[in-house]
């Protein structure tokens, strides 16, 4: 344990006291996607404490997480584990070593749409994501099905003061959302 830098960074970004973990495995036992993870939640926590930065930040697990928050409400030490996974996503993107780009890509298009309109234009975010993935057809049937059921809006809903909202976005995330 000679490298505490990564632990401190993750604690700072997440706002959680990670070092209080005593490896009870509750987070892993309740996780609905633990079976799909390359490193299960309680081990991620342990690796953070041990300073195994690269192992953690390049892990697929931090992107497999669904943010269902089961781990967080079950932790006997009140560690918001889901929030730590959230923080790890941010750090791994900042360091350009994320193992999975899809979640961040979709979330960026989601927020891009909110920046433009103030409200999410579902169709726009989905189409932008599909275009970026060069995969327009795999979910076309689902999209058309939703459209026929009146569950896919063609036009965006806009807030009145769009300029103010864009300014706010610019102040916080700069031009970063544009990828």
């Amino acid at each position: 344990m000679d490298n505490l830098e990564f632990l401190h960074e993750t604690e700072k970004v997440s706002g959680e006291k990670i070092s209080t973990c005593y490896q009870c495995y509750k987070c892993t036992n309740g996780c609905p996607v633990a079976a799909e993870m390359d490193i299960v939640p309680h081990r991620i926590i342990r690796h953070i404490i041990l300073g195994n930065k690269e192992k953690v930040l390049t892990s697929k697990s931090i992107w497999t997480c669904l943010q269902c928050i089961t781990c967080s409400v079950r932790c006997p030490n009140d560690i918001d584990v889901a929030r730590i996974f959230d923080a790890l996503r941010k750090i791994s993107v900042k360091e350009h070593c994320e193992a999975d780009k899809d979640t961040w890509l979709f979330d960026s298009f989601f927020l891009d749409s909110v920046r433009k309109h103030g409200k999410l234009h579902e169709l726009e975010a989905i189409m932008n994501y599909k275009l970026a993935k060069r995969d327009l057809f795999s979910d076309a049937k689902m999209g058309i099905g939703m459209f026929l059921k009146g569950r896919m809006g063609i036009l965006p809903h806009n807030v009145k003061d769009r300029k103010q909202l864009r300014e706010i976005f610019k102040k916080i995330v700069g031009e970063r959302l544009g990828r």
């Binding site: 943010q67 979330d107 960026s108």
Partner: peptide
């Protein structure tokens, strides 16, 4: 928009 799941991730 409230930001939903996307905003707190980013």
């Amino acid at each position: 928009c409230c930001g939903a799941s996307a905003a707190h991730t980013v």
